[in-house]
Amino acid sequence: MMLEMEHLSVRFCQGQQAVTAVHDFNLKMDEGEVVGIVGESGSGKSVTAHTLMGLLRRSQVEVSGSIRFQGVDLLTLSRQALREYQGKELSIIFQEPMTSLNPTMTIGAQVEESLRIHTRLGREERRRRALEAMALAGLSNPQALYRCYPHQLSGGMRQRVMIAAALVLRPRLLLADEPTTALDVTIQAQILDTLRDINRKEGTAILFISHDLGVVKSLCQRVVVMRRGVIVESGSVEQVFYHPQQGYTKALIAARPARKKLMGGVEHG
């Protein structure tokens, strides 16, 4: 097993109050697997991903359970040791491609940033690998884009830049936190294709988080349904979609605007 999350619970502490965002979450993933987490907004799916990625401020959250990645419990690592995984073994792309890139840094610098942090490669080699990653992420003219700034790119292109930056070190696991929610439907389909390609070519495992069942169904092999911080149901895509066991999952499937989705109704999480 590449990833084993066991009894993961996350509580946000604000002064005297504490809110449980995720409770007793369990998930196992193999190398190269594509797994989806589905749930409505506030179900704890993003918090799970951010916890796995080590992005939550340790002073503000209480985390219990374990996240074993390639045999190492990430939750027991020091901040510094955790950084060795971030961007190298584990990468993440976010929902907001418009704001997730640094406005004053060139695309090239942002794509190769993980290389600069984690390797001792020279400038030319970094550039070569960045261009390669950009091509892998489906950017058609990496050479020209290398010197551009984010504001010169469309939302879809920025999301591809994010993907390129996440993939530049060929991580074992890519977390995709609603990566297509903010994009329109055609672009959404293209990005999903790109992710599928990457999974096939590079063998990168993908943990795909979405509120959109259709998207998860088309991309993932297994799916976890979450509600209010708890796993409601999990299993293979076929099992969950065609033979849902839980009322909530059924309701979720029923509530989906079947087929009309493609007509352009973009939902927001």
Binding site: E84, Q86, G87, K88, S91, T99, L101, H118
Partner: peptide, 12 residues
């Protein structure tokens, strides 16, 4: 948001 991205790449 871009700060979160920066942290996710392993920046201190």
């Amino acid at each position: 948001d871009y700060i979160r991205t920066a942290y996710s790449k392993g920046n201190s």
